[in-house]
């Protein structure tokens, strides 16, 4: 039998075919041994959960709008009462002031924004912990901002109030029990010059973070910052009646 050109072609094609088959077998072995494979059942369950999550988020958005409109009605009513009576007027201004300070109404004003982000280059060697933002880093910055006269602070849209906590649960940071992810944008209302000078002074908080971690830090002065209101359960409080 003569060797035709076609035999060489066939040999080449079959050779690569065999190679791909063996490679794919090996590849599948590798990936399945690494993690558990997802069965169709689990896939469906996951899909279901994800849909529920999206639905829940949409509902929350709607509820938040509803809450804002009720709050608006309440303050309209209070304003009306303030116009009618002198005593009401005094009460109203105090109420507005305290609500702002406690964080129950959205506020606007000048201030600074500090952005903390995980480092983009994590080396193979070295401690990964030095390259990600920890909740205590956020607490340090927040504390320093309040110490230098910040009047209101929000982190990624979560307004801080008295009972706020900044905690770490597993790999995520919770502010007001709501999950926030990097980059962490800390907006603080106050005197922009005072706040930025206090943060960036030698031996200050930002200098320390730069010296001891590798996270990315940005500090910007802002003429206008909008901070949302705290939404959460403020009802369960026990008040001493002394009125």
């Amino acid at each position: 039998m003569k060797i035709h050109r076609i035999h060489i072609y066939l040999a080449l094609v079959l050779l690569s075919f065999g190679f791909i088959v063996s490679y794919s077998v090996q590849f599948t072995k590798q990936t399945t041994s690494g993690t558990l494979p997802y069965s169709d059942d689990q896939w469906e369950k996951k899909q279901e959960l994800q849909e529920k999550l999206i639905e829940e988020q949409a509902q929350i958005q709607e509820l938040e709008n509803q809450l804002q409109s009720i709050k608006h009605k309440v303050s309209e009513f209070e304003e009306k009462m303030g116009e009618r009576q002198a005593e009401g007027k005094e009460l109203l201004s105090e109420l507005e002031e305290v609500r702002m300070w406690v964080g129950l109404v959205p506020v606007t004003g000048s201030g600074v924004m500090v952005i903390l982000n995980d480092s983009k280059e994590v080396p193979d060697l070295g401690n990964v912990n030095d390259f990600i933002v920890h909740e205590e880093n956020i607490r340090q910055v927040v504390n320093e901002l309040f110490a230098s006269g910040a009047e209101a602070i929000s982190i990624n849209g979560q307004r801080l109030t008295t009972i706020s906590s900044i905690r770490c649960v597993g790999p995520t940071v919770l502010v007001n029990e709501v999950k926030v992810v990097p980059p962490f944008e800390i907006s603080a209302i106050g005197n922009p010059d005072t706040l930025s000078t206090a943060l960036s002074m030698p031996q200050g908080v930002l200098q320390n973070l730069k010296d001891f971690t590798n996270i990315e830090i940005k500090l910007e002065k802002k003429d206008k910052l909008n901070l949302p209101a705290y939404t959460g359960d403020t009802q369960k409080l026990v008040v001493k009646e002394d009125l």
Partner: peptide, 16 residues
């Protein structure tokens, strides 16, 4: 209104 004020004051730490 006064009750609301005292509730918020307590939350903010301005009242006992």
């Amino acid at each position: 209104m006064k009750e609301e004020l005292s509730r918020i004051k307590a939350l903010g730490g301005l009242a006992e």
